[in-house]
Amino acid sequence: MGFINHEKVAGKMASRTAKNSFVKGLFLAATLFGLVVLAILIYRIITQGIGYLDGDFFTNFASRRPENAGIKAAIFGSIWLMAVAAPVSIILGVGCAIYLELYAKKNKFTRLIQMNIANLAGVPSIVFGLLGLTVFVRMLEMGRSVLAGGLTMSLLIVPIIVVASQEALRAVSKDIQEASYGLGATKWQTIRRVVLPAAVPGIITGVILALSRAVGETAPLIVIGALSFVAFVPENIWSGFTVMPIQIFNWTSRPQTDFHDVAAAGIVVLLIMLLLMNSIAVLIRNKFSKRY
């Protein structure tokens, strides 16, 4: 045919392979950049905070003196907040995803809902804080309690969980669902025994990402009036509370530089907590994939 001129092709070969290696190098550099920045960040935080990371740091409450300052109230506050936000947001988020993905008819109305949920996932967190302040703190008279904070956080993360769970549910092979229906299973049996087990790893990843976001979030809690100087552990869902990022923010905004090191210690604890959450996610995921 003569469309391919092999001499010309050979002539261009060198520049083609060069471009190939250049692009590869570029992407490698992009990856390394992220890694290096992360490494520097972690190194700085740890060297700065290590001096304050001792047993006292975990058992002491907030204090005016840096050497006595501890993160106990904030750790417990964060745990309490998660204890409220996690069940509420998982039940609402996963339930909503299952309904939209597996039960709802695909029409204009569900598309509208769908679009709104995707948009909600992108709304700035402070807006959810204002909503929580109006609805939970004032209208429902929950006050500045763990309950109000947890519910506000749920508002913030439910859309994230819905979107992630929907994706996980949509990725479940239609073939095995048909196999289940073909054996006379009801919709719920199919969801419970085929769809959910296959989707759980994806759903859990989404849930943990959402909860990690909630653990690190400050703005909405400041809006609803979480405290920053707390010398007690919440006793029930009506107690006042603080959380780790607020405590850290409070320390970094103090004039004494010693408190900045305390803040670094707090950041280390926060990072460890996030790491723990992610490990739990990995564990659960492995457990579910082993069952097959």
Partner: peptide, 30 residues
């Protein structure tokens, strides 16, 4: 009820991502 009387085998083999035993036991279990 119809589908327990009228079983189906599909074009592409579509076993569940479970053990051989669990695949066969699935129908009786449900």
């Amino acid at each position: 009820e119809l589908r327990t009387k009228v079983g189906m085998v599909f074009q592409k083999p579509n076993p569940f991502p479970k053990s051989i035993y669990e695949n066969v036991a699935y129908g009786p279990r449900i």
